[in-house]
Write a protein that binds this DNA or RNA. Sequence first.
DNA 1: CTTCAAAAATGAACGAACTCAATTATTTTC
DNA 2: GAAAATAATTGAGTTCGTTCATTTTTGAAG
Lengths: 204, 204
Amino acid sequence: MTGLRERQKAHRTRRILETSSQLFRQVGYGAVRIDDIARAAEISVGTFYNYFETKGDLLLAIVSMEVEEVHDFGKTLLADPPADVARALARLIGGYYDHSLVYLSKEMWRTAMAITIEAPATRFSTRFTDLDRMLTDQVCALLAELQRRAVVRPDIDTRALGEVVFNNLNAMFIEFVKDDAMTLPQLNDCVARQNAPLAALISC
Amino acid sequence: MTGLRERQKAHRTRRILETSSQLFRQVGYGAVRIDDIARAAEISVGTFYNYFETKGDLLLAIVSMEVEEVHDFGKTLLADPPADVARALARLIGGYYDHSLVYLSKEMWRTAMAITIEAPATRFSTRFTDLDRMLTDQVCALLAELQRRAVVRPDIDTRALGEVVFNNLNAMFIEFVKDDAMTLPQLNDCVARQNAPLAALISC
DNA sequence: CTTCAAAAATGAACGAACTCAATTATTTTC
DNA sequence: GAAAATAATTGAGTTCGTTCATTTTTGAAG
């Protein structure tokens, strides 16, 4: 049976996540103080730190939920990918990018990326890194699936290529969030151009 | 004629850079307080902020000097690259990695990378980003040079491929600095494996 | 229903990056 | 060379994330 403690803990975790992600979007991650979050979630500052290790850890929890949705999108695409390497990659990657910005600002992404590099050992930093690996696996799986369908040449190392493609799409996403002026279409065009020679080389 | 002010400014900038990079290496970036740097450089805290925008900006100034040396190494290699794509890339990338760790700890790299993402508008953050672009150009130039020498197929878009290769080597370097247990040989092997299919596909 | 131990909540206190109004040093002007 | 203008220095003060000793709440045992 779930005791009062357990229920309260779940309730408060949810409340912190909801109110803080709302605040982050409204006024920006940097402008929100722990005190603001505590006030909005109706807890004390000390209690906040019973639920999340740091302010950054909270952000990564929020961002991780978003990446999970991105990963789910990928799963549906992999079930029936376009029968063309360039097009399949563009659809997967474009989907990643689109989903990434529904609830999160560029500032939130910048901060999240920075934290996973600087503090990779925190609870949700680890979670985020795991999700990144899952997305890498997904890109590799797409190439493997296209290989199975005889769209990609059979002698290609899809694991190695997939890792390279993911690292590139991720690096370009970082460029994108670093530059407030850069738009999603520009990002997609840029990555498509980079993937073009690869796609051509590995296609049957 | 150089006035007293100009000379003092140059002298102090040098002094801050010297003492702080020594401190960063000795006790770690995180453990050094601005107050420590000010004391070591014989200035006040306020004066420190006349010379560098933030603590992170100072770190990026130090790291940038290092990246300049990495870039210089690349220039010498490009003058006479190995006549084999995989080997040429391994030599360039391996050289980058080796030079990167002579004076800088993994912690310093982690922090530096994090800052360029989170605060890309600071003076030395911009400098660092420029240097990154110069390294990208260098990788592209290597591929172009190999193409000129008929080692790389003439129909290859060396710009696009070079960007992908750089983004990948950079992403792997981030993985490397995030993981204290990862060694340089492991990093090199990993990237060589990733580059192998690319090298095979674009070779004449 | 009490008692007690364990878990959770609390907010004042701490530490460190950064700021700014006042002071001091240098350069320019007459 | 004195005075005015400009630039640089200073360190106490502010802000905000984080900690921790204390108090309060919860669940179990008798």
